[in-house]
């Protein structure tokens, strides 16, 4: 009889020990959103993100307008895609490279009263997940979670500026 009790106790102990580890891993996840968006083995897994290297986010602020015909040489890689826009002039106003580690964030002040805050949520394989918060003097405008493959670019655009518009290309390098 005692042998059976010991056997049952051992089974319960093994089950509890296997339950505690994933639960602890889940608690390390920074936000509930990540649980919903990435799933149990998604890119948001804290363990994997911790093992990833830092991510460099190259950010430019570009003034697009119809004033003349010009494209900044720094935008050569985007030139073909910018032709779809109605503007004829693209001038890089600022450019900076932000080094981000997991859960760290950086602010970029943009002409036109906008502020762009970018946070590295995680990396997994050749993808990095960012949280981009755009705000203006009247408050938060948008809160975006976006996954970007290595070397790829996404462009936040919007603030109207000096007869045109500002484009903020963000490229993930890691």
């Amino acid at each position: 009889m005692s042998t059976k009790k010991n056997l049952i106790a051992l089974c319960l102990a093994a089950l509890l020990s296997s339950a505690v580890a994933p639960a602890a891993e889940a608690q390390q996840r920074p936000r509930p959103q990540q649980i919903a968006q990435a799933g149990p083995r998604g890119g948001g897994g804290a363990g994997k993100a911790a093992a990833a290297s830092k991510v460099q986010a190259n950010i430019m602020v570009v003034h697009a307008s119809e004033d003349g015909s010009y494209i900044d040489p720094k935008l050569k890689n985007l030139e073909r895609h910018l032709q779809h826009l109605k503007y004829s002039s693209y001038r890089v106003m600022t450019q900076e490279s932000l080094e981000l580690s997991q859960d760290s964030d950086k602010n970029v002040d943009v002409e036109g009263g906008w502020d762009v805050n970018i946070t590295l949520l995680s990396t997994s394989g050749d993808k990095a997940r960012f949280r981009v918060r755009v705000s203006s003097k009247k408050g938060n405008l948008a809160d975006i979670t976006i996954a970007v493959a290595r070397g790829r670019t996404f462009v936040v655009s919007g603030p109207k500026y000096n007869g045109g518009i500002l484009l903020i290309p963000i490229t993930a390098k890691f």
């Binding site: 009263g113 203006s136 948008a142 996404f154 462009v155 655009s157 603030p159 500026y161 000096n162």
Partner: peptide
């Protein structure tokens, strides 16, 4: 492209 329009008057 993520085009954000806040319906704000342009700064210039």
């Amino acid at each position: 492209f993520l085009m954000i329009d806040d319906a704000e008057e342009p700064s210039a």
